[in-house]
């Protein structure tokens, strides 16, 4: 799964730590989601999308295996 979190963070000038504080998770969780090493829950994906003023569909790109 690919994400646009890094791109959108840069657009809003947010560090991983800023975003983590906004949604109440640890910085490493944001890092691993960006790297595609951790699949967030629907609630966390929703919270990230809200924090980055976008939608889940726009934020996460699912790849066919």
């Amino acid at each position: 799964m690919k994400t646009r979190i890094k791109e959108l963070r840069a657009r809003y000038d947010l560090t991983q730590e800023d975003l983590a504080k906004k949604i109440g998770v640890r910085r490493e969780t944001i890092l691993f989601i960006e790297k595609g090493k951790y699949n967030p829950s629907l609630k966390l994906a929703h919270d990230i999308a809200i924090a980055l003023q976008t939608t889940i569909d726009d934020l996460f790109m699912f790849e066919e295996d």
């Binding site: 730590e17 504080k21 109440g24 998770v25 640890r26 490493e28 969780t29 691993f32 951790y38």
Partner: peptide, 14 residues
């Protein structure tokens, strides 16, 4: 370290 930075000690991943 996380609490001092104002981040939660644990989240859904942990």
């Amino acid at each position: 370290k996380n609490i001092r930075k104002g981040l939660p000690a644990k989240d859904e991943r942990l």
